[in-house]
């Protein structure tokens, strides 16, 4: 079930913000989580929901996409893993999994 993407390389300058849009499946119970490795203090990662379009009526089953924002803090190398899974199914494989190698220089 896990959808794994190729490792993507990102090159950022200190102070730069980079956004990654992630498919939301919150209405089925799935949320994204982030895990930073390497020089963990090189970047700060936060996750936010993308807003529903203003003219979009709610439809049960629709989920807001999510946006991971990477803030480059200082020069160095870090890895970022983004995983989508249900909070109560931590032992299961992630539904979707994305890997990033980040260079801040």
């Amino acid at each position: 079930m896990t959808e794994r993407h190729m490792t993507e390389r990102l090159r950022l300058r200190p102070g730069e913000h980079h956004e990654i849009r992630l498919p939301g499946r919150g209405a089925a119970g799935y949320v994204w989580s982030s895990h930073v490795g390497g020089d963990a203090d090189v970047v700060a990662v936060s996750l936010h929901a993308a807003p529903f379009p203003a003219d979009w009526p709610p439809q049960a089953g629709h989920s807001a996409d999510e946006i991971a924002t990477i803030e480059a803090l200082k020069p160095g190398q870090a890895t970022l893993v983004l995983e989508q899974r249900r909070p109560w199914e931590q032992e299961s494989a992630a539904l979707e999994h994305r890997d990033y190698d980040i260079t801040v220089a």
């Binding site: 994204w32 996750l47 929901a49 807003p51 003219d55 979009w56 709610p58």
Partner: peptide
Amino acid sequence: PADDEQVPEFPLGASPPADL
């Protein structure tokens, strides 16, 4: 889940229903 495990943050964004 551990206390430091994330529950991701999401802003409100849905509009009032247009056709319901």
